[in-house]
Simulated scan of single mutants.
Amino acid sequence: NRPIALAQANAVLNRIDLLCEIAGTMLFGVLLSRYDPVTCLKFAATLMIGSLPTMTALIWLTNKFSSGVLDRPKCSQSSCAPEGPRSETDSIFDLGMEAIKLGWKEYIQQPVLPASLAYVLLCFNIVLTPGSLMTAFLTQRCVNPSVIGGFSGLCAVMGVAATFLSANLVKRFGILKAGAVGLFFQASLLGVAVAVYWSSSLSQKSPLFFFLSMIVLSRLGHMSYGVVGAQILQTGIPSSKANLIGATEISVASLAESLMLGVAIAANDASHFGFLAVLSLLSVVAASLIFCRLLRNPTDEQRRLFSFDPLAI
């Protein structure tokens, strides 16, 4: 029941994660400029294997100092497992299917489902984001590699800046309204970017830079909602079901990305980029509308969950 403190904690964790990703990418880039790819991959594999004991020790210390917060929570049979004893003849496939069904059931019934669905819809937006599709599009346009690198670097910087912004948004607007601000900000800037794409020729520098700048700034809204959305789920999901619902959400989000990549593969010509950009924009707009419905028409349970945050509902 301390939304600002939780927002600050989530922001710090995300900030450390993003900074490590940036540092790792820069280090790998330096190594690639000096050594062959095989040597770099060997170094990366050795670094990961060598850091595993340290990570395991840190997790153990975390659990020890926090009085077993990472221990598996106890829950009733009705919510965590089907009643009745397990037979030794149960196959791994049957147990896996049972876990998937249970996870999907709990995911659908969670009280903050609209916030989770908004996050899943944002995963459809893989065109108007820094990544392989945008890199391929810019390369097809014969954009200078330094511009492509600068675009990706600025997007990473915006991600770090969003971790500072998210906690301030929660403090000023409340949890739910902070999520809505992030979504609407992203949708607005991506709408401008798509409009620039269709109304101008990106072969000229000015429209191209404006198009890329809108995408860079939209990362503020995207990453802000990532932090705030995680806090909404932390607030609305019981600890006994957090792993189950969280794993199901990640699976659905991965499926959304795979579906969008499938569409991109089907429309593999560079001339279809505008169509893919519109689909990405629509997914962000749909996420905003779904979240807005949660904000405007909360259920009694949602009011109870966020009753300690008077600015939220």
Rank of each mutant, 00 (worst) to 15 (best):
V112T: 08
I16M: 07
I148Y: 04
L217P: 00
A9K: 05
G221R: 03
Y225P: 00
T25D: 10
K64D: 01
L138D: 03
W198Y: 14
R219N: 12
S240R: 15
A180K: 05
F28M: 12
A7V: 10
L189H: 05
I265H: 14
K171R: 15
G246K: 01
G50L: 14
V196Q: 02
K64C: 01
G246T: 05
D17T: 15
A193C: 10
I232R: 02
L208S: 01
A11V: 10
T25L: 15
M97Y: 13
I250V: 13
A136G: 02
P114H: 08
L52R: 03
S201K: 14
S283T: 01
V30P: 00
I265Q: 12
L128F: 06
V192A: 11
R2D: 08
L189C: 09
L311M: 11
M97T: 09
G68I: 08
G236M: 07
H222D: 07
F211V: 02
V69R: 12
P114R: 08
L190V: 04
S79E: 13
A180Y: 12
L165P: 02
G229K: 01
T299K: 05
S51A: 13
T89L: 09
L169C: 11
V194W: 04
P111W: 13
P73R: 04
L138E: 06
P111N: 08
Y119M: 09
V284N: 02
A23V: 07
W104Y: 07
A286V: 10
A266Q: 12
I16F: 10
I49Y: 03
D300S: 14
L32Q: 15
G246N: 05
F151M: 05
W60C: 09
Y197K: 03
H272V: 03
Y197M: 09
L244W: 01
L281D: 00
S213A: 15
E21R: 14
L282E: 06
L102V: 02
P114L: 09
S79D: 09
M48S: 12
E83L: 13
G103E: 00
G221H: 06
G84Q: 03
V143G: 01
M48F: 14
L202S: 01
L202T: 03
I250F: 14
Q109R: 15
I265A: 14
S152Y: 09
P298T: 12
F275L: 15
S200V: 01
K177A: 02
S201C: 09
I126N: 02
A81M: 12
Q77F: 11
G191I: 04
S79P: 00
R219H: 13
A99W: 11
F137I: 03
L122D: 05
F291P: 00
I16W: 12
D71Y: 06
A247C: 13
A266V: 14
R296V: 13
S280I: 08
N125K: 04
S199C: 13
A195S: 13
A136Q: 08
N10A: 11
S240Y: 12
P85W: 10
S201F: 10
V147E: 07
E301M: 06
R172G: 04
L261V: 12
L47H: 08
Q77T: 05
L138Q: 05
L52F: 09
S200E: 07
